[in-house]
Design a protein around this nucleic acid. Structure first.
Length: 467
DNA sequence: TCAACTCGCACCTTTGAACAGG
DNA sequence: ACCTGTTCAAAGGTGCGAGTTG
């Protein structure tokens, strides 16, 4: 596995002491996140996961499911997911393999999916698998449902963020821990390109049971079966034939241009397996240049441990510098990242100063309409007790708590308006002010009650421009 | 011409309301 | 009155394939 900072090769390697599990592991670094169904993910990843994106929104399959440990049972946490471009390219499926088809399109409004249970005490997250089943992907840039907007034929990978915060407002004072699982990377498509993926989806997704060969679906199968035109024959043929020959990893890899040369060794340990898996991942090449960072804690016996990117603010900034370098592209409309914060942000990043999520100062002083109690292990509001923080948050990063830094890094550009927040009932706030460098101000709780948890969870927590 | 995309379809699971029984 | 289990219909999630678009 790898941390976010390793996704781009031009990131300066952080001091080893900041690496999770290192001698100077951050005190919150004992939070562990493992991916559920790693084998399933792996089987998809080895072929080259594709995720359908549609206008109304499409669920992911496999779903993002994680297990958490190391959380403080009484403290509240917020869980988030966003999608990060893996690279700056657009792809096309050409003759059984993915090829680069040019530069990536300008990133659509980036959105972060907030887990419906957020915020919830650590005990809540620990006791069961956390599922992001309802997360939906869309290619509709005007989407009003809060789905995550992606471009088709681009590669993405989900990032999981866990924030210790009583509520969305105190996120400002909280430390992000960001986790990525390389095997969850995928190519967004409007129609499946690789028939192997189609087959895997049909085999494993219960909703697609009707398309299984052994299924009872006689009508449709009769339709799609032989005497079929070339195109159909090709598909069906591939389905049956490829399923027989798609086992060897090297053959699988051959589907991906530029990856044939990589050879993987059999894993000796779990961690080796992680690295190996990346190597024969069809989407691994650029990561070969990165620095693999070991996980904070040894991988669990049953689930593959993911690499903890540790304290990285969930932000496009993690890949933004890469883009700037690569394309010399103006970072606008998030250009304020570069302009308002200059290189300090990056320096902060590079120096592995931990990140603090903040809300704009003016938000912190908003009058409270719903006092939020402390995170005591006393009576907790039900998991469904949520407030409406829509449009409130603007993220930035500063120093590690207790080691506050003045390097303000604003992946969600401090100058960026929150106007991109979408969805009905969305509270529109004026553009946030520049984030203060003084973080000694105590957090102020705000209460904007929102009765509909599910509804709220659909809205982007951090809607921002990636470029 | 063709790749990417949209849409309607059939098939399936999930969900929740209604109901019965203890 | 309350709880539990069952049934059933509606809602919604799938991939397929034909048609559309640029």
């Amino acid at each position: 596995m790898q941390s976010i900072r390793d996704m781009k090769s031009n990131f300066i390697a952080p001091p080893s002491s900041s690496i999770p599990g290192g001698p100077d592991a951050y005190h919150q670094g004992n939070i562990r996140m493992t991916l559920e169904d790693p084998e399933l993910w792996k089987s998809f990843h080895e072929i080259g996961t594709e995720m359908i994106i549609t206008k109304p929104g499409r669920r992911m399959f496999p779903h993002c499911k994680i297990n958490l440990s190391g959380l403080m049972p009484c403290s509240k946490y917020i869980l988030l997911v966003d999608m990060v471009p893996v690279d700056g390219f657009r792809y096309k499926w050409n003759k059984e393999k993915w090829e680069v088809a040019g530069k990536a399109e300008p990133q659509p409004p980036c959105r972060t999916y907030l887990h419906p249970d957020s915020p919830a005490p650590g005990s809540h997250w620990i006791k069961q698998t956390v599922s992001f089943l309802k997360l939906k992907l869309t290619n509709n840039t005007l989407d009003q449902h809060g789905h995550i907007i992606l471009h088709s034929m681009h590669r993405y990978h989900p990032r999981f963020h866990i924030v210790q915060a009583d509520d969305m407002y105190s996120v400002r004072w909280s430390v992000f821990q960001t986790f990525t699982f390389p095997e969850t990377s995928f190519t967004s498509v409007t129609a499946y390109q690789n028939t192997k993926i189609t087959k895997l989806k049909i085999d494993h997704n219960p909703f697609a049971k009707g398309f299984r060969d052994e299924g009872t679906n006689t009508k449709r199968r009769a339709n799609r079966n032989p005497a079929c035109p070339e195109k159909k024959a090709k598909k069906i043929d591939c389905l049956s034939r490829e399923s027989d020959e798609d086992s060897p990893p090297d053959i699988r890899r051959s589907s991906f241009e530029g990856y044939e040369g990589e050879q993987a060794e059999l894993p000796k340990t779990k961690e080796e397996e992680v690295v190996k898996e990346e190597r024969y991942s069809p989407w691994g090449p650029e990561r070969e240049h990165g620095h693999h960072v070991r996980t904070d804690s040894p991988p669990g016996p049953d689930a593959r441990e993911m690499y903890n990117a540790e304290q990285l603010v969930p932000a496009p900034a993690s890949y933004q510098p890469y883009r700037f370098h690569e394309y010399g592209k103006s970072p606008s409309p998030s250009s304020s990242i570069g302009s308002s914060n200059g290189g300090s942000g990056r320096a902060s990043f590079e120096s592995r100063v931990s990140d603090v999520a903040t809300v704009p100062e003016h938000e912190a002083s908003k009058p409270s309409t719903h006092e939020i109690g402390p995170s005591l292990c006393g009576p907790q509001p039900p998991a469904g007790h949520h407030q409406d923080y829509t449009g409130v948050l603007n993220m930035t990063q500063a120093g590690k708590p207790g080691v506050l830094s003045h390097h303000i890094y604003t992946p969600y550009s401090a100058e960026q308006t929150l106007g991109q927040w979408s969805g009905p009932n969305t509270v529109q706030y004026p553009p946030p002010h520049h984030l203060p460098s003084d973080y000694s101000t105590p957090a102020v709780h705000h209460g904007y009650h929102h009765g509909n948890v599910a509804e709220w969870s659909q809205y982007p927590l951090f809607s921002y421009s990636c470029w």
